[in-house]
Design a protein around this nucleic acid. Structure first.
Length: 584
RNA sequence: GGGGGUGUAGCUCAGUUGGUUAGAGUACCUGCCUGUCACGCAGGAUGCCGUGGGUUCGAGCCCCAUCACUCCCGCCA
């Protein structure tokens, strides 16, 4: 061992003992007659003092030290006087008086400083990610990530789940996200694909009688990226047999409690709130509402259609709706102009507003609303004097989209978000199908193996868009962090569902034949869920950007600034793969 | 695929209406200093103003194109 202790370990209890530390030079302070340095490793920092009276050789050598050099120091632990204690360091009560210094490695001048005050941009951080990861903040993030993974493993094991690996080279499926393809050398003209998720394999494991499966699984999707979407990401993939939705809710609530407790010492309350999809859309305008604040939407379609305001009336006449939000807090004329612009940019025709005062409603359109209608509007919205009613009238899709964004923006602007809270909610009772307006046809809302609600199965043929699914999302602070469903294990129901979305038996056979065949050999009822590990760790650590908790992330265009991938393939590689690139 | 933002010293940024030699902080180098801990003080070095083209007597600044990073929409069953 090149050290006797770590850099975060020495305290008053080690006073007068000899110790050897190894680590990086974090800072140096040359006082002429005495040198100080902070030596840093993953575990902390310790102040080292070089005094000529203690060791002339080490003192002179220390003069050459530079930031990020790797050194080994042996010395005596000494108490600092009370006025010299550094409260910010765990080792701040002591310092190491060096009598031997060995330079293990030098360093070029780093491109950015690794202290807590400098904020290099992402491009620089990603290019030198190995240096970025030396920063205390990043070291903390990956400790949290590690603890979260360990907690998930331990908890699921304790609940009887088996961790089983599924293949990375899999069959391409046409549904869902775009696949990454891996050409096969041994089979000219064919490709594997990288898994978008272990979905089909975990269902096969249920047919195999594994009963309870989990995997901390890497998933790859060749889609455009966002700050919360990387081309490869990690899920805590879970599947279980002979269960109902309630089992998943309880399991995941206990799992989340364990992860948050073990990783960041935070106790989260369970059971989590539950909202149906319909309720979420009505009150929040989206299927992943942030419940850290209220600001609920109110549907006033039935009230305003009796007004004389033609803008609202004509929208209602065309089958549209009118909803409003009533933020309390001061909104200036300028703010309202900004929000009208905001609404237009998000697809609305405009935005109407009324100020609520002690005397009633005020705005340039109030004259079109009778006193009775005004009273009913105030009642419906529960609006208090000082708040502002902001209306969007349009097709339901537009109204909800615009108002849910407006809601999020208002909450931020009016400082309504308690950032110390983790607000979990289950969103349930999603529709099984959705109508694709572009393709003019019905498609699966989740995936085609999702089980309809038992009481809605007979609607499959008569009114498929009314069929609700045994399908659930877990939302944390307005971000979807898990999604799952009870699966169809009955071939008859599977056929009926596929018929609704227009998949023929032949097409199904071609795409998922191996799964459907497996299901003919006694598939148990089963279901599962897949919490997004990166998102959970990011939120626990206080970020919205999952790149802060991924060791070597890609840029928004899917490249790596660190190693420069993707790179052109060598002609020889392509020849072996029986491939030719045709680049325009 | 569409829209927005950014690009100036190693790093983070400022740069006015187009006008002389492009600045600051920090990092870096040198010197001084025996109690600092984001040490201090003094001095020094550091620029393809993303790239290419254009307008102009003159461009960091205006115009066009392009690249990179980034955010949003589409996309992500």
């Amino acid at each position: 061992m090149l050290r006797t202790h770590t850099c975060g370990e020495l305290t008053a209890t080690h006073n007068s003992q000899s110790a050897t530390l190894a680590g990086w030079v974090h800072t140096r302070r040359d006082h002429g007659g005495v040198h100080f340095i902070h030596i840093r490793d993953r575990f902390g920092m310790t102040q080292v003092v070089f005094e000529p009276s203690h060791d002339q050789t080490a003192y002179e050598l220390a003069d050459n030290l530079r930031r990020e050099w790797v050194i080994q120091i042996t010395g005596i632990v000494r108490m600092r006087s009370s006025d010299q204690v550094n409260q910010k360091l765990s080792t701040g009560e002591i310092e190491l008086v060096a009598h031997s210094l060995k330079i293990l490695n030098k360093s070029d001048v780093p491109p950015f400083t690794l202290d807590e005050w400098s904020e290099p941009t992402e491009s620089v951080r990603f290019k030198y990610r190995y240096l970025d990861l030396r920063r205390a903040e990043m070291q903390r993030n990956f400790q949290i990530r590690h603890k979260a993974a360990q907690a998930a493993r331990a908890h699921l094991s304790e609940e009887g789940f088996l961790e089983i690996e599924t293949p990375m080279l899999v069959r391409s499926t046409p549904e869902g996200a775009r696949d990454f393809l891996v050409p096969s050398r041994l089979n000219p003209g064919t490709c594997y694909s990288l898994p978008q998720s272990p979905q089909l394999y975990k269902q096969l494991l249920m047919v195999s009688g594994m009963d309870r499966y989990f995997q901390i699984a890497r998933c790859m999707r060749d889609e455009d990226l966002r700050s919360d979407r990387q081309p490869e990401f990690t899920q805590i993939d879970i599947e279980a047999s002979f269960i109902t939705e309630e089992f998943i809710y309880g399991l995941v609530e206990r799992l989340m409690q364990r992860i948050f407790r073990d990783a960041i010492g935070f106790e989260i309350a369970a059971p989590f709130a539950r909202l149906t999809f319909a309720h979420a859309m009505e009150k929040y305008g989206c299927d992943k509402p942030d419940l850290r604040y209220g600001l609920e939407l109110a549907d006033v379609t039935d009230i305003v259609k009796e007004s004389d305001f033609t803008v609202f009336k004509s929208v209602v006449a065309k089958g549209g709706m009118v909803k409003c939000i009533n933020p309390e807090g001061t909104l200036t004329k300028g703010d309202l102009e900004t929000y009208i612009e905001f609404a237009k940019q998000n697809g609305a025709q405009g935005m109407a507003w009324m100020k609520v005062t002690e005397a009633g409603l005020e705005s340039n359109i109030v004259k079109y609303f009778s006193p009775d209608i005004q009273k009913r509007l105030i009642e419906r919205t529960g609006a208090k004097p000082g708040s502002t009613l902001m209306y969007i009238a349009d097709r339901p899709k537009v109204v909800n989209e615009v108002l849910s964004r407006l809601r999020a923006d208002l909450a931020r602007k009016l400082n309504l978000i308690n950032t110390k809270v983790f607000s979990f909610a289950w969103v349930t009772d999603f529709p099984l199908f959705e109508y694709d307006e572009k393709e003019k046809r019905i498609g699966a809302a989740h995936h085609i193996f999702t089980m309809p609600k038992a009481e809605h199965i007979d609607l499959l043929e008569t009114d498929p868009l009314k069929v609700l699914a045994q399908c659930y999302d877990l939302v944390l602070n307005g971000i979807e962090i898990a999604s799952g469903s009870i699966r169809i294990h009955d071939p008859e129901i599977q056929k009926r569902v596929m018929k609704v979305i227009g998949v023929t038996a032949e097409q199904a056979e071609k795409r998922f034949g191996f799964l459907l065949e497996a299901f003919r050999y006694g598939a148990p009822p089963h279901g599962g869920i897949a919490p997004g590990f990166d998102r959970i760790v990011a939120l626990m650590s206080g970020y919205n950007d999952i790149r802060e908790v991924i060791a070597f992330p890609k840029t928004a265009s899917g490249t790596s600034l660190l190693d420069g991938c993707p790179t052109p393939a060598e002609a020889e590689q392509l020849r072996e793969l029986h491939m030719k690139f045709v680049v325009q």
